[in-house]
């Protein structure tokens, strides 16, 4: 169920990228799709009533392995969030420069390049 919501969020992001005409809305669409993926990744490692994946002294190893959540997706998501930040920053920087040149965020009016 929760995975389906993830896919819906991803689809919302894709809709934003493909159908919106405003540069900022396209960037938001990309961010939504990116976060849907991060959510998906983090859910892959999640367990109900899971504990933090840190082994302390005197803990039963077998029980720990059964209840601890998978730490790898968390590491992946951290990396992915940082990359997403870099992309968003560059996106917005370019969008600002485009606004300076064209005076608009509307992609139908930003058409100096021809096919």
């Amino acid at each position: 169920m929760i995975y389906i919501l993830c896919f819906v969020l991803f689809a919302v992001g894709l809709y934003g990228i493909f159908c919106k005409k405003n540069l900022i809305k396209i960037i938001l669409g990309f961010m939504i799709a990116d976060y849907a993926l991060n959510l998906f990744l983090i859910l892959l490692g999640y367990k109900k009533q899971g504990i933090a994946p840190i082994l302390s002294k005197g803990q039963n190893l077998e029980k720990f392995a059964k209840t601890a959540v998978d730490p790898l997706p968390q590491a992946l998501v951290l990396t992915s969030i940082v990359i997403g930040l870099a992309i968003t920053a560059l996106f917005i920087a370019i969008a600002v420069r485009i606004y300076e040149r064209y005076g608009t965020f509307d992609i139908t009016k930003i058409r100096k390049l021809k096919g």
Partner: peptide, 13 residues
């Protein structure tokens, strides 16, 4: 330049 920014945005998307 205007064209370069536009191309870069398209490429980025």
């Amino acid at each position: 330049e205007a064209e370069e920014l536009e191309a870069s945005f398209k490429y980025m998307v």
